[in-house]
Amino acid sequence: MLEISGLTKYYGDKAAIEDICFQVNQGEVVGFLGANGAGKSTTMNIITGYLSATKGTVKVDGFDILFEPAKAKARMGYLPEIPPLYQDLSVWESLCFTYDLKKAKQDRKKYLENLCEMVCIDGVKDRLIRNLSKGYRQRVGIACALVGEPPILILDEPTVGLDPKQIIEIRTLIKELAKTRTVILSSHILQEIEAVCGRVVIIHNGHIVADDTPEALAARQMGGSHLALQVKGKPDIVCPLLKGIPGVQNAEAEKNCGENVWRYRLNTGGEDIREALFFVLSDHKLPILELQDLRATLEDVFLTVTRETGIEGGDLDGSNL
């Protein structure tokens, strides 16, 4: 549906992005993750035709953004980082303007009223954009992106600058929209990507450093799955038993957590061995006090891939993650 290949953009001598390649299929919700200044907005601006790439192509349903811009742009709804809304228009006028601009074909009044209801802005329809809060502007921006029913929605940091309640509302809205659309969402907030997206593309200093589902990325990070458990039993008895369970690759005692209670760590290589584990230990009258499935978070993945790539020049700010 959306095909991006070899996208490179130079500002003077400096490459903002270099050789970005990925594809987005119909119905996917792709999270575009990167630190501030990693090249997310540049990539999105090129995809939507606001900027031109120095090299590379963007194709939307087979239409090249450079050679058939009108057809390509009609298939995408874009919400830039700052919603592009005219301060002197009211919400309703903004929507009408966007409707006319995109030459949408539905019954205008009815269509826009439904849209207002969908993004919950029907209460502020007559207010001027300049008098709206950031959260409402964001909603109006999303509504404008939705006008004309584009099958692809591109949202650049849609929750930046919002309060926690608004963030949850916008996320819920995006999830709702994603049911019937292809969505590309950029963010530097990991939880957001985790909450909304089925696939993550991580960009770092203008290069793609990872592209997979959050689960697969996490599993790859951990090198299989890991279990942590507390058992009332000494390592010399418990460890051999644990190693004997089919599927367990490694088992070791981590630390003593009290009288005769030890914490163990198992590497299972992906199989679910929890049931077998329970029966083996209960057969030997070794009570399990705690069992925990250890998963890598997207944050671990992000930090690892952006560190491992060895791409110079990053100024990763931990507070943004």
């Binding site: 601006n45 939507t48 035709g49 606001y50 811009p69 009108a70 057809k71 742009k73 009609a74 995408m76 874009y78 830039p80 700052i82 592009p84 809304l85 005219y86 301060q87 966007t98 601009l101 995109k102 030459k103 404008c144």
Partner: peptide, 13 residues
């Protein structure tokens, strides 16, 4: 005000 983004990413010449 970056409103040109709306114009330049809309299907208009």
């Amino acid at each position: 005000y970056k409103t040109d983004q709306a114009l330049l990413t809309a299907p208009v010449s």
